[in-house]
């Protein structure tokens, strides 16, 4: 088992590095000049100034050399300095990641808490009204474009009905609690600032719902399909023949077997929520990693792009790894094989 773990971690690390190399090469093929993304017109036209800028950010070095510098920094746990924000990329990420983690986690919990029960009910009461409702919810969730859904939700609940708070993590006038973890909910609890906690929770409802929509749809559909398959298996028929009560059959026998595809999908969905919230963050003025990633990409900010690629790849691989491990719990046969 230990050997298995070590080889998995080593492969994962190699995969992450490969991902950064690919992104590095792609980012270098665009004609856009990082110096021009940052400098005003006069400065950008002063050869001396541009030369100094390039030297400062290592843009004058050959491409392989720059990649080596990235690797060297990585070995020291250092992602370098962002060209756009002019401070350590790690500081930027530490600033912006918590907002995204908070949003993605709440969305994930929301989609699991609603998606799995809805999927189970839809499978058990197949073709009943609840199945149709579940199908409709999934369809909307999966097919509605995020930015459209975000605007509609905002206009409806914030603009027209006036029952939800507006964009941002807290009210503009609120004072933020001292930053400890950066996760606002936890910082509020630590500071015993219940009013801001209340406000922050209220501000999370709309963006978390929007972000959860697509995941919720997928989880509902997958749970339903897996449950239908489980429920038609022989062991379920045996359980029924033994006279077990229906809830026990569904939750005790069919569900654990149906969970494997759901866990696989859930893991990927969580990684996707963590890394793919750009539209939601934009509409809800959410100071998260998605907006930061977008800005880094358009301003050809190499250190930031590389660090984010590394982190995104690492998140996906780590979550996949955890999913694999969870099979051991859900289906012991998976480890033996």
């Amino acid at each position: 088992m230990l050997r298995y773990l070590i080889s998995r971690v080593a492969t994962a690390f190699a995969m992450v590095l490969l991902a950064t190399l690919v992104i590095f090469l792609i980012a270098n093929t665009v004609p856009g000049d990082p110096a021009l993304a940052q400098l005003g017109d006069l400065a950008a036209s002063n050869p001396e100034f541009v030369k100094a800028f390039r030297a400062k950010w290592g843009l004058d070095l050959p491409i392989w050399h720059r990649y080596l510098i990235f690797l060297e920094g990585l070995a020291h746990g250092d992602f370098g300095i962002s060209i756009a924000s002019q401070r350590p990329v790690l500081d930027d990420i530490r600033d912006f990641a918590p907002a995204t983690i908070e949003l993605a986690t709440i969305s994930f919990i929301l989609s699991i808490l609603i998606g799995i029960p809805l999927g189970i009910l839809a499978a058990v009461r197949r073709d009943s009204w609840i199945d149709h409702v579940a199908r409709f919810v999934s369809l909307i969730g999966v097919s509605a474009p995020t930015f459209w859904l975000a605007f509609i939700m905002l206009a409806l609940f914030y603009g027209m009905m006036e029952i939800a708070p507006g964009p941002g993590r807290v009210d503009p006038i609120a004072f933020l609690p001292p930053r400890v973890t950066g996760l606002l909910l936890i910082d509020c609890v630590l500071a015993k600032d219940w009013e801001t906690l209340n406000d922050a929770l209220a501000h999370l409802v709309l963006p978390a719902t929007v972000l959860a929509a697509a995941t919720l749809g997928l989880i509902t559909r997958t749970t339903r399909a897996a449950m239908l398959e489980s429920l038609s298996q022989d062991y379920v028929r045996v359980a029924r023949a033994k006279g077990l009560v229906e809830p026990h059959i569904v939750l005790g026998h069919a569900l654990p077997n149906a969970l494997i595809p759901v866990v696989t999908l859930g893991g990927l969905a969580y990684a996707n929520l963590l890394t793919g919230a750009v539209m939601t963050e934009t509409v809800f003025s959410w100071p998260g990693l998605g907006r930061y990633t977008f800005r880094s990409a358009v301003s050809v900010d190499f250190p930031a792009i590389m660090a984010i690629t590394f982190i995104v790849a690492a998140v996906y691989i780590a979550i996949n790894f955890l999913v694999d491990l969870s099979y051991a719990v859900l289906d012991p046969r998976a480890v033996k094989r």
Binding site: A155, G159, P167, S285
Partner: peptide, 12 residues
């Protein structure tokens, strides 16, 4: 307050 979306600004 940072609001990058004009529609969000209008609502606010």
């Amino acid at each position: 307050r940072h609001m990058s979306e004009s529609a969000a600004q209008l609502l606010a």
